[in-house]
């Protein structure tokens, strides 16, 4: 465990908790893509299948449970909570995310470290996490609505990406046999898509700021 990865895990968790709190506190999820949140929940469920089989550390196990619970809580809030689900942009959040799930699963069947149930699902979760932000990116391009995408959420999500890349660079130079090409390459694609999201987020935020200028 190195400081970059610990900080990356923590900023990742904070980004999820910030979003959950924002939705729960304002009882609104307008501008949030339910599809992206569903993909994130699937990512954690598919990746942490080893929760009960491989014990790595208390930290590792606790964080896996917290990631699963918090990501499922966001999906539950957006689908079940009466007040929240009324504010869901159902007619705008229309990206066919099932195609992303299917494509990532097929790709995981082709490219993985070992052809075992857990390894294929692990690779699937890595690929899916990389593309999971696409429905949110499309929704943001359509709606320009950043009401619930707080700056903190975007900041912590970006910090998570940057710190994980630093973690891989650090591990590459300090560990003899560090070979996580699947996670590294997929992580770079994920970061590039995040950068695209950030670009549209910044534009929307600037436009909203202009719109809200005192008349």
């Amino acid at each position: 465990m190195n400081a970059f990865r610990l900080a990356g895990d923590i900023t990742h968790l904070i980004s999820i908790l910030v979003l959950l709190l924002k939705i729960y506190a304002t009882k609104s999820c307008s501008g949030i893509s339910l599809k992206t949140q569903e993909l994130y929940a699937v990512v954690f469920l598919a990746r942490y299948l080893d929760l009960f089989t491989d014990f790595i550390s208390v930290y590792n196990s606790v964080m896996k449970v917290v990631f699963i619970l918090s990501s499922v809580a966001i999906v539950w809030c957006m689908r079940r909570h009466r007040a929240v689900k009324r504010s869901y942009d159902k007619e705008l959040d229309t990206f066919r995310h099932y195609y992303l799930v299917g494509a990532c699963f097929v790709f995981a069947l082709l490219v993985h470290e070992k052809f075992t149930f857990q390894e294929v699902f692990w690779a699937f979760s890595i690929y899916l996490e990389a593309v999971a932000i696409i429905p949110q990116l499309v929704l943001l391009q359509r709606s320009g609505n950043v009401d619930n995408l707080t700056g903190q959420y975007v900041f912590f999500l970006g910090a998570y990406r940057a710190l994980y890349i630093l973690n891989w660079i650090y591990r590459y130079f300090t560990e003899a046999k560090f070979s996580r090409w699947i996670a590294c390459i997929s992580g770079l694609v994920q970061t590039a898509l995040y950068a695209d999201f950030f670009y549209y987020y910044f534009l929307s935020w600037k436009n909203n700021a202009k719109l809200n200028l005192p008349a």
Partner: peptide, 10 residues
């Protein structure tokens, strides 16, 4: 298995 090969990253 040693930690590296295990999936020790979240």
């Amino acid at each position: 298995a040693n930690a590296d090969s295990q999936k020790d990253e979240l």
